[in-house]
Design a protein around this nucleic acid. Structure first.
Lengths: 112, 112
DNA sequence: TTCGATGTTCGACGAACATCGAATAAGATG
DNA sequence: CATCTTATTCGATGTTCGTCGAACATCGAA
């Protein structure tokens, strides 16, 4: 699963790439959910999209260096690359999370 | 010219809208150029795109509340809405401008 | 090994987008 | 008025993007 889960070096990521990744409501919602630093399993994520779509979004986030994926058996866990992001783009993440009236799709946790 | 140059209230602008607007290399380049606070005339902007395309990009930025357009005769001037942006999205603009290794298209000033 | 759970990949679709050139509008200037 | 400059809009084109369902791959468990 997730064969070539590539995690790019943040130094190779351009600002426009990250901005594109975060410009989507669903992806921004995912980032906000993950912003507490807790690692989540895919199945936990309660997003109003099909599985394949969710998989796609998580792939985009991963490719943009925003998230990190860990595989354990058949399950995958995601978490934010907060520290690395803040190192590469100082202040960006925190300023994004501080905004309210963001157009992010609210993402929940199943069974919560 | 620029008949209904609408400048939305920043309070009505969502974060995703701004991120989308800034995710384009040309538009990010324009914002960086304008970040010195100087008001520029369209003709001054030396971007590697056709005039109609430039007009389009400036319209997107204006619709996203990022820039403000002033008309004077047949000429139009643009400037960043820096203060208002920082009020609505604290720290966002400055963190974006601080990044180097941004994928922004370099925009110049004609005759410079 | 067969089954179930979990993600991924693969077309496919429509919508949105970036881009251009040409046509247009409107003020400035001769 | 005729014309030039400046910017907008229109129509067209090709691309990218978000989305879905279906098929596939992989691991764990019965």
């Amino acid at each position: 699963m997730a064969k070539d889960a590539q995690h790019p070096d943040l130094e190779d990521i351009e600002l426009t790439t990250v901005l594109s990744a975060l410009a989507d409501p669903v992806r921004l919602g995912l980032v906000r959910l993950l912003s507490d630093g807790v690692e989540r399993q895919w199945g936990e994520l309660d997003a109003p999209v099909a599985k394949s779509t969710l998989s796609h979004h998580l792939k985009v986030l991963r490719s943009a260096g925003v998230t990190r994926t860990r595989e354990e058996g058949t399950r995958c866990y995601v978490r934010l690359r907060s520290d690395e992001l803040d190192d590469r783009f100082p202040g960006l993440l925190s300023s994004l999370l501080a905004v309210d009236g963001h157009g992010a799709t609210p993402i929940g946790i199943k069974g919560a």
